[in-house]
Amino acid sequence: MPIAPRRGPVALAYRVLVLPGVIAYLFTVSIVVLAADRFWLVDLLTFAWPYVVVTGALLVVAALVTRRIKAIVMAVAGLAVALIPAADVPTARLSTAASGLKVLSANLYVLNAQSPETFIDLLRREKPDIVVMQETTRRFVDAITAARLFPYESQFDPSTRDGIKVYSQLPIRAQTALQRAFTEEDAYKQPLRLELDARGKPLFLYAFHPETPRRLWQWRDRNDYLAAAADAVKGDLEKAPVIVAGDWNTPTWSPFFRNFLKQAGLASTAGGWLQPVTRFSLKLAPLAYIGASIDHIAVSPDITLTARRIGPDFGSNHLPVIAELSLPES
C-alpha cells in the first residue's frame, strides 16, 4: 500500500527550504574547509565564518522542527564541519600569574578623522608596555611622541614602512625590515622585526600588516608574506621568546592563519569560533560591529596568556586588541 506524502506547512518548508538548505550548506562548508588554501574566492568566505556557523546552527534548529532524520543528520554534519577551523587553531596557554607585559595592537586607519587624543587617552588608561600600530600617519606619530608616554620607538618612517610604528617601554636593541623575495609585480610590504630588552633578556617582536586580499595578486602576496615571516619567526624561536602583533588581514578561520601558527611554532591569544570583531564596516557601526576578526597577537609557547580583550572605538575601522602576557623566567 503506497504511503501518502506528508502535507502541511512544515512538510512544505522541509521540501522547499530546509532540505535544499542543509544540502547546500554541507556542500559549501566542506568545499571551504577542504579547498580554501588553494582558491582565492573560497578563502574569502572565511572572513564571514562566524556568520556561517550561526547559519549552520539555525539550520540545525530548522531540521529539528521538521523531525526529518535526513535533514537533521546533514545539518549537524554541516555544523560540525564548519567548526573544524576554530578547533584547529593553536592557542596560548592560560596563566593565573600576574601579567608581566601588556601588548596593544591597533590599526589607526589612514582616514581616521578623530583627534589623536582619543587614542592617546586609551594608551593612558591601558598603560601598555608595547604598542604596535598600522596605517599610522604623521599626525598620530607627532601627537603620541609629544605625549611622552614611551621612552622607545621604532625608527623607521611609517610613511615608508607601510604605516607600521612601534612604541615601547622596553629598550629596543635592534630593528630590521624582514627581506623577502617578491613574486608579485606590485608587492612591497615587509614585516618589521624588533629585538627588545626584557629585563636583560632578548624578546623578538614582529609587527605585521600584509596585503588585504581584495584581489588575486594581493591574496597571493599576503600568503607569501605570512610564509616568509613564519620561517623567520621559527629561527628566532631558537634564541628567545617571540610576539607577533598587527593587522594580519587574515581571519582566524583561514587556513593561512592556522598554517602560519603551525609553521612558525606560535599560538594565538584568541581561541574559539565566536571571537569579537576587530575590523568592521563604518557604515554599519551605528547599528552593530559587522565584520571579521583579522587583528591578532600571537606568542611563542613559552609565553602564557593572562587576559585578552578588545578595546573601544577610537575613530578607526578597527578595534584595538589588548593582550596581557607572562614572559618565561628563563
Results as ranks from 00 to 15, higher is better:
Met1Gly: 15
Gly8Ser: 09
Gly8Asn: 09
Tyr14Ile: 00
Phe27His: 06
Phe27Ala: 15
Thr28Gly: 02
Ser30Cys: 05
Val32Lys: 03
Val33Gln: 11
Leu34Lys: 11
Ala35Leu: 07
Leu44Glu: 11
Thr46Tyr: 07
Trp49His: 02
Trp49Ser: 06
Val52Tyr: 01
Val54Cys: 12
Thr55Tyr: 03
Val61Asn: 04
Ala62Gly: 05
Ala63Met: 06
Val65His: 08
Ile69Val: 12
Ala71Ile: 10
Ile72Gln: 13
Ala77Val: 14
Gly78Ile: 02
Pro85Leu: 01
Thr91Lys: 04
Thr91Pro: 03
Arg93Val: 14
Arg93Gly: 10
Arg93Ser: 15
Leu94His: 15
Ser95Asp: 02
Val103Met: 04
Ser105Thr: 13
Leu108Ile: 15
Leu111Ser: 13
Leu111Ile: 05
Gln114Ala: 11
Gln114Ile: 00
Asp121Phe: 00
Arg124Tyr: 08
Arg125Gln: 11
Arg125Phe: 03
Pro128Trp: 08
Asp129Gly: 10
Asp129Pro: 04
Arg138Lys: 12
Ala143Lys: 02
Ile144Trp: 09
Ile144Val: 15
Ala146His: 08
Arg148Ala: 10
Ser154Gly: 14
Gln155Ala: 14
Phe156Ala: 11
Pro158Ile: 14
Gly163Tyr: 12
Ile164Val: 11
Lys165Glu: 07
Pro171Gly: 06
Pro171Glu: 08
Arg180His: 12
Ala181Tyr: 06
Thr183Ser: 12
Thr183Lys: 05
Glu184Arg: 11
Glu185Trp: 07
Ala187His: 02
Tyr188Cys: 01
Lys189Gln: 14
Leu192Cys: 02
Leu192Tyr: 05
Leu194Cys: 13
Leu196Pro: 09
Gly200Cys: 04
Phe204Ile: 12
Glu211Pro: 00
Pro213His: 04
Arg215Gln: 11
Arg215Tyr: 10
Leu216Met: 13
Leu216Glu: 15
Gln218Lys: 11
Trp219Tyr: 09
Tyr225Glu: 05
Ala227Glu: 13
Ala228Ser: 12
Ala228Gly: 05
Ala229His: 01
Val233Gln: 03
Ile243Asp: 11
Val244Lys: 04
Val244Thr: 12
Val244Tyr: 04
Ala245Ser: 10
Ala245Ile: 03
Ser254Thr: 05
Asn259Asp: 13
Phe260Met: 12
Phe260Asn: 03
Ser268Gln: 00
Thr269Lys: 03
Gln275Asn: 15
Val277Ile: 13
Thr278Cys: 08
Ala288Ser: 08
Ala288His: 03
Ile290Pro: 09
Gly291Leu: 12
Ala292Thr: 14
Ile294Cys: 07
His296Thr: 10
Ile297Gln: 10
Asp302Pro: 02
Thr304Lys: 10
Phe314Pro: 00
Phe314Glu: 13
Leu319Gln: 05
Pro320Tyr: 08
Ile322Phe: 01
Ala323Tyr: 03
Glu324Trp: 04
Glu324Thr: 02
Ser326Arg: 15
Leu327Val: 00
Glu329Ser: 13
